[in-house]
């Protein structure tokens, strides 16, 4: 591990926790507005999606800059995406619905944006679960890479979830959608090219 990376890892970890610290402070200070549960839920969802995109940006950035070490941050950023996604869903289950499992079940079946969001989270679980060195070894590098390509489906699902949730003003999900599309598009040449894998 290079020296820069040894410093970068804890720094990125600390920075990645800042949104959580910020929203916790807002909650305590009463800064979440008239509907704090909704505000908290939206905030956590936004950050889950942002971390997904940041994690997806790691490989293109590594290729562009040639800075190999940045690739070593990918796992942590991906796990933060999972972390915020779990908090996002937890705030829906525990605060918004207060563990009303019947209502939650109906929501997942009938509210399509929730169906899509839950699918995205479910697909994230095996990725998070196979993120340790020992799991990578057990799954095998090749299978592991194949499995983790699921993020190319998860990210669009997350954007679609946001898009469907919005009533009329799609400008924000559109921004996320464009960024996600670019991050996926830059992978296409390699994916389709003679190298055949990313």
């Amino acid at each position: 591990m290079s020296r820069a990376l040894r410093l970068a890892k804890p720094a990125v970890f600390a920075v990645s926790l800042l949104p959580l610290v910020w929203v916790a402070w807002l909650a305590v200070a009463g800064g979440l507005g008239a509907n704090p549960i909704e505000a908290l839920n939206r905030f956590l969802g936004d950050w889950a999606l942002r971390f997904l995109l940041v994690a997806l940006a790691v490989t293109p950035v590594r290729r562009l800059t040639g800075w190999a070490a940045v690739g070593r941050l990918r796992r942590m950023l991906g796990l933060f995406a999972f972390f915020y996604a779990v908090l996002h869903v937890s705030s829906y289950v525990g605060l918004d619905q207060f563990f009303d499992w019947q209502a939650i079940g109906k929501d997942i079946l009938k509210r399509h944006y929730i169906t899509v969001g839950m699918a995205a989270l479910t697909l994230l679980v095996p990725l998070a679960a196979t993120s340790t060195q020992s799991m990578i070894r057990r799954v095998g590098g090749r299978n592991w890479r194949r499995l983790h390509r699921a993020v190319y489906v998860i990210t669009p699902l997350a954007v679609v979830h946001f898009w469907m949730m919005v009533k009329a003003d799609h400008s924000r999900p559109l921004v996320y959608g464009v960024v996600a599309a670019l991050l996926l598009a830059v992978r296409l040449p390699r994916f389709l090219g003679p190298a055949g894998r990313t």
Binding site: A34, E38, D96, Q97, A103, D107, K110, R111
Partner: peptide, 19 residues
């Protein structure tokens, strides 16, 4: 009668925790 986006069975009264 549910709205496609929201169940209309319950509501959050602003200022209250339980629906």
């Amino acid at each position: 009668v549910d709205h496609p986006r929201w169940s209309q069975a319950t509501e959050r009264r602003i200022g209250e925790f339980f629906r």
